[in-house]
Every structure is written in structure tokens, then in C-alpha cells.
Design a protein around this nucleic acid. Structure first.
Length: 461
RNA sequence: UCCCCUGUAGCUCAGCUGGUAGAGCGGGUGACUGUUAAUCACUAGGUCGGCAGUUCAAGUCUGUCCGGGGGAGCCA
């Protein structure tokens, strides 16, 4: 394979002519010499190409070397007298592969707002910041798999289309092949026996319940895939389609769950700091000043752990500061999460043992009968990045919870079977991949850390 | 879904209590000792988000619809 620009920039000067491919990022032209920079997406830095017009002066080609043009350049890699690079390419021949007329090409050699770039999502990966996000996201994906694979977790492909009626983690996108202009009905309601699956189906909102199936056969498993929520939420932290990581571990209590969550976050951050140092420097300089040091200290310090009850006591000491009054039984508001992570603990915090009434039916009941073995990992700037729990493994207690919450026992028949046969303590959590990327890069809007964001009223590209 | 802000040149914005549009960057043209967001000179770009209304007169005021941003809720 031909070397990438990333590799070429690390090379020593050549003695033979080589051919380099890339897109023009910027050009600086003067009477005797023309400089332009090439990017092929392999790294943040560009390869500087120099045209010595006394030796080679293709006027018509230089005119077409505009920002965005795709080119092929023959030349000699030489030591660069300039300050910003150790080598540069002395061009002997340039071929334009694809022009990018400057009058109409939307990207200019200047900074653009992320709002503007969202409207041209097909071109934005060519910019420095979105290019860096792309590399960090890819590297982080690899780190996710590596963390779990190194620890013997099996990667489970849970279904994208879910016909089970029991996920209950938010509004779902319905999936149907029925003609919406002519829906078969019995009485007043839709007759799903005529639909593709013979019953109603939807895009998954979580792979957790299916992951539990495999945790109870393979001990340690994880999922990492797309997840869909049809919530009408309009914030910088929510997407209708996002990627979620959900480990599920058998013979594991809430403490083990917290340990895994903490190790996981630290591992991925450490991996990115090591392998994406150049890109992280861009975020450190232009997106979130000081983020590299702050992430490094996260890797090197313990996450604080506090029960919901103790966190509430802490918040109640400072009631006056909040718009929403903190009181036991009420879920933590955004302002409370911010206060805990940014003022009280100054770093990631794991809050545990929430009141049962504000958490899901499957979480294990504590002996007090009031709280459940839940944990949320909260981080500065973002709030909740992980939600998890030890799962209820007692058939009686789980059945009682299902009934208490007005759910249908029969919808959960296979989930209850897991407690009927060989039930063991097990735990797991869900982590929004995009939120992790936001946390690591400092990018303020979640729409800028996923290539093609899907949000309410927006599915362009 | 609720609250607040916002929509003016390709981009980022200015435009006062109403009197028919400006800057920087980008583009084009030219100049220029190897430049690094190069520099310098000249130059062309606008149905002021859509529709309706008030007024002699609307970028400016009002209503409404549609974008965009921030916050809240829901959560990951």
C-alpha cells in the first residue's frame, strides 16, 4: 500500500521521486514559488508541496489548485527549511484529478462555525476539527472493543429490530411494512397480524435485556451498536440514533459494575490521549482549553462514589443555589449533576442506590425496600454518561416489580425464565458512545461527533 | 414539548428612537525574496428567512410560519 501523508511526514528525505495523493487545503502563491498543502485525512497535519516556478511552471494547473481540489503530485521528498515541518515535497509534476471551483466550493481556508458545517455534512469531514473528531471516534471504537476483548468479554450482536414489547426505555420508532394509507384494523385498533412480523415491531432502544441472556451463558459480554429513541428532545446531548455500549457481567455485583465502568472510561481516555495526541492538541487549543490535562488527571485519580442519599444531603446544604429544590425521592436535575461534578467533587462521580420509584423495573432492590442497586456515572460539562445497575435476580421480586409497575408479565416470559433457571447475580451498564466522544474532545454539540446526526426533523444525508 | 435568543454578501457579523445597506474574511484581478490563517493594491458580490399587516416610508415595528442557537424536561 502507498504510504499515507501521516507516514510520509515521519519519513526522511528521499533520493527517488515519489507520487503523493491528496486534497488541497491551502495555497500560497508568489512570483517564483508556490506552496500548497495536501491532506489525505490520515492526520491533522498537511504535507507542504513546493513548486519552484523556475524549474516547473504549469500556470493552468496552478490556477486549478484551489482549496478542495483532488490531486496527484510527483516529486522529491526533501528537507524543509520552513519551521512547521521537517520534510516537504518538491513537485516535478502535478495532475489535477478533480477540480473544486473556488467560486462555488463552500469550504474556505478559514474557520467555519459548526452550525454552518452541519448544513454541509457531506463536506465537513474535510475540515480540521471534524477530521480530528472522525479519527478520534474511530480510534475510540477500537479502544472499546480492545478493552472488552482483552478482558475476555464476548461481543454480542443484539437485534436492531425488536418485536419484544419489554424494553421500555423510551419512545420507539415503529417498524412496519403495512401500507400506512390502508392499515388493516380489527374493531378500532390496528391488526398487526397482517404486519411483517405478525406483531408490532420497533427499532431497539437498548440491547440490555438480550445481553443479559448471553451474560447468563457466557458470563461477560458486551454490545456496541446503534440505538434509537423517538423522543422529542432537542438538546446538545441527545440524538434519535446513537451508538451505545452495554456490558453485562454475571457473578458481578454493583461494586464490580462500578469498577468496570471506571476502568473502562479511564482506558478509552488513556488510549485516545496516547494514540490521538495530535488531534487532542487541536481540541485542547481551540475547543476546550486545558482538556488534555483535565483528562489526564481523570485517568490518574479515583472516581468519587456517593450514594444518592448522601448526594442529596450535600445538595440540600446548598438549596439556595438551585432552581429546583433537591429533596429525597426526586431525580437529580441537570443543575444538581453539574454542581456535584464541578463544585463538590471536581471530577467524575458515581452516584448509587437511587430511590426505586425513579428507576427501571429490572434493578435489584436493596434490603431497605426503598432504594435499588443503581449507579449513574456523572461527568463535568455533560452530566450523565453512564447508567447501570445490578439486575434483580430473584424471580419473586422481579415478578412483583413488573406487576407493581403495571407491566405485563407475559411480555417478559423469557426475561423471567433467566431468573427461573440458573439465576445468578449480574450487573451491567449503558454508555452513550457519542457522549464519551463529547467528553473526550470537548465538542459542545453531539451532532458534531457523529458523522450523520439524526434528530427531530433532521435526517439529511 | 416548554422558556429565552437569533435569521442582513459565500462565511462571521455591524446596521441607534423607522428615511431604500456596511466591515472583516473568502472570491476575482494584479504585485510580491521560502510561504505557514503569507503579505500589499484594486475589484465584483445583497428580493436584509417566507407570508401578511401598521406607515407617506420597514433590515428596523406587529402577527404568523419556517430555519438555527442556548436552557429545561426525557435520558445515554
Amino acid at each position: 500500500m502507498r504510504p499515507s501523508i501521516k507516514e510520509i511526514l515521519l519519513m526522511n528525505p528521499d533520493t527517488d521521486t515519489r507520487t503523493v495523493y491528496g486534497w488541497v487545503r491551502t495555497k500560497r502563491d508568489s512570483k517564483n514559488v508556490c506552496f500548497f498543502e495536501l491532506s489525505d485525512g490520515s492526520c491533522l497535519k498537511n504535507l507542504q508541496v513546493i513548486v519552484d516556478k523556475e524549474k516547473y511552471n504549469p500556470d493552468d494547473i496552478l490556477a486549478k489548485l484551489t482549496t478542495g481540489a483532488g490531486v496527484e503530485v510527483d516529486g522529491l521528498l526533501v528537507e524543509s527549511p520552513g519551521a512547521n515541518q521537517s520534510v516537504e515535497l518538491q513537485a516535478s509534476e502535478i495532475r489535477i484529478l478533480g477540480e473544486a471551483p473556488a467560486e462555488s466550493y463552500p469550504l474556505q481556508k478559514k474557520r467555519h462555525s459548526f452550525e454552518f458545517l452541519r448544513d454541509i455534512a457531506h463536506l465537513r469531514p474535510r475540515t480540521n476539527a471534524l477530521g480530528a473528531v472522525t479519527r478520534v471516534r474511530s480510534t475510540a471504537s477500537f479502544a472499546v472493543h480492545r478493552f472488552f476483548q482483552d478482558r475476555g468479554f464476548y461481543y454480542i450482536h443484539t437485534p436492531i429490530i425488536s418485536a419484544s414489547d419489554c424494553e421500555g426505555a423510551g419512545e420507539m420508532f415503529q417498524v412496519t411494512t403495512m401500507d400506512l394509507n390502508n392499515i388493516p384494523k380489527t374493531g378500532g385498533s390496528v391488526d398487526y397480524t397482517h404486519d411483517f412480523f405478525g406483531k408490532s415491531a420497533a427499532l431497539t432502544v437498548s440491547g440490555q435485556l438480550e445481553a443479559e441472556i448471553y451474560a447468563l451463558s457466557h458470563s461477560n459480554v458486551y454490545t456496541f451498536g446503534p440505538t434509537f429513541r423517538a423522543e422529542n428532545s432537542n438538546t446538545a446531548r441527545h440524538l434519535a440514533e446513537f451508538w451505545m455500549i452495554e456490558p453485562e457481567m454475571a457473578f458481578c455485583s454493583l461494586d464490580g459494575n462500578m469498577d468496570t465502568a471506571e476502568d473502562f472510561i479511564k482506558y478509552v481516555i488513556g488510549y485516545i490521549l496516547e494514540h490521538c495526541a495530535e488531534d487532542m492538541e487541536l481540541f485542547n487549543k481551540f475547543i476546550e482549553k486545558g482538556i488534555v490535562d483535565s483528562l489526564a488527571s481523570v485517568v490518574n485519580s479515583e472516581f468519587h462514589r456517593v450514594t444518592y442519599t448522601d448526594a442529596m444531603k450535600e445538595l440540600e446544604k446548598n438549596k439556595a443555589k438551585f432552581e429546583f429544590e433537591p429533596s429525597w425521592g426526586v431525580d437529580l436535575q441537570s443543575e444538581h449533576e453539574k454542581y456535584l461534578t464541578e463544585q463538590v467533587f471536581k471530577g467524575p462521580v458515581i452516584v448509587t442506590d437511587y430511590p426505586k420509584d425513579i428507576k427501571a423495573f429490572y434493578m435489584k432492590m436493596n434490603d431497605d425496600g426503598k432504594t435499588v442497586r443503581a449507579m449513574d456515572v456523572l461527568v463535568p460539562r455533560l452530566g450523565e454518561i453512564i447508567g447501570g445497575s445490578q439486575r434483580e435476580d430473584s424471580l419473586e421480586k422481579l415478578t412483583a416489580r413488573i406487576n407493581d409497575m403495571g407491566l405485563e408479565e407475559k411480555d417478559y416470559w423469557w426475561y423471567l425464565d433467566l431468573r427461573r433457571y440458573g439465576s445468578v447475580p449480574h450487573s451491567g451498564f449503558g454508555l452513550g458512545f457519542e457522549r464519551l466522544i463529547q467528553y473526550m474532545t470537548g465538542m459542545q454539540n453531539i451532532r458534531d461527533v457523529i458523522p450523520f446526526p439524526r434528530t427531530v426533523h433532521n435526517a439529511e444525508f
